[in-house]
Design a protein around this nucleic acid. Structure first.
Lengths: 190, 190
DNA sequence: GCACCTACCTAACGTTTGTTAGGTTTGCGA
DNA sequence: TCGCAAACCTAACAAACGTTAGGTAGGTGC
């Protein structure tokens, strides 16, 4: 049911997604939803929260797996890969979060913002490690550029196309670190 | 009235924006909208179209103004600045387009897609000029990265903050061309 | 002064929305 | 086998939605 809600969110946004649709998707009636959630807002708070949970979990997994890694660029690429994985490989929760968060009413958003802030903090800390020479005032901006490039992939990237998620993660990382010219040389440093 | 519609679009998305709200914003009643447009869909087709128009016009202006420019990176930066200008300085049409386009029903979107394609083609051509050594298969991807970085600025950039639009355009261009490390050296090549 | 057009309003329509009260089914534990 | 709670349904509610038919005020041209 949360899955169905997330998929509808991706396709239609918050207001256009009705409880009757979600109920029909899983073969129940709209009123039955209220046995599990107090309101539409409550249901989608859960969906958006899971969207962040998936991201945070993926981030944490990479952090432990890459513990003894000495090449900082590899660490970054692994985290980029994890973020893309959360977007494309772990259900629609993260995708729903990224695409539909701003279509939700403000009361709902403000309940989610603390979770978002936590995730953003982790990325800031990561980027501070990977890029120690970067002016700390520029760091959040660099992160926002990276997030922009990663998150808009849901609008165009096709999992079944020629480019794999690994390849996409590598492209984004190289482009982010070294600029567009380095795109032709991708994977040459491995 | 189109302005009011665009502002509501940015704040609430397509479905959550009601004709009664738009009418109230400009001091008329909802029914009166139908004297100017045949339907809600018709009204927002006009709004989305203008959003692209603003971008295309800004692009064209830079093209003529930068005609004799020999430094390709300056040309690119001027176009980035123009795109950001369309987002932040020419009403809410472009901002509405970028944020709310995917919240609109599909029939409406398909009426707008040709205009979008035209704008994307211009950028592809520009990038092919600026980056002749870039693999042509990578070119659309590079453009999508750049678009992602530019368009997500509406979610965080503050016109009244320390960073100016010129500065932001420079940051994005440098970051795009040379990578994140070059951010510390911005404007040093001028 | 008359006709006419544009811009708006009033008042309702049918539909859909989130939501609720009360009843029914299902399955598990004692 | 009984009881009970979780899961679901039915049927409706008030509110809000896009939309429409018919009417009104104000200005323009003749």
């Amino acid at each position: 049911m949360l899955d169905a809600a997330a998929e509808r969110l991706v396709a239609q946004g918050y207001t256009a997604t009705t409880l009757r649709e979600i109920a029909a998707d899983i073969g129940i009636k709209a009123g039955s939803i209220y046995h599990h959630f107090e309101s539409k807002e409550d249901l989608f708070i859960e969906v958006f929260s899971r969207g962040i949970e998936v991201m945070v979990d993926a981030f944490g997994d990479v952090d432990t797996a890459m513990n003894g890694c000495d090449r900082e660029s590899d660490r970054l690429e692994a985290h980029v890969r994890a973020h893309l994985g959360a977007l494309f490989e772990h259900g629609s929760f993260t995708a729903a979060h990224v695409t539909a968060f701003f279509t939700a009413p403000e009361e709902l958003r403000s309940a989610i913002v603390p979770l978002r802030d936590d995730y953003e903090h982790r990325w800031n800390a990561l980027l501070a490690d990977v890029l120690p020479e970067l002016d700390s005032a520029r760091l959040p901006i660099a992160r926002l550029f990276l997030f922009g490039a990663m998150n808009t992939t849901i609008e165009w990237f096709d999992l079944s196309g020629d480019l794999s998620l690994d390849g996409l993660a590598n492209l984004i990382t190289v482009q982010f670190l070294e600029g567009v010219d380095a795109l032709n040389l991708q994977r040459s440093t491995r």
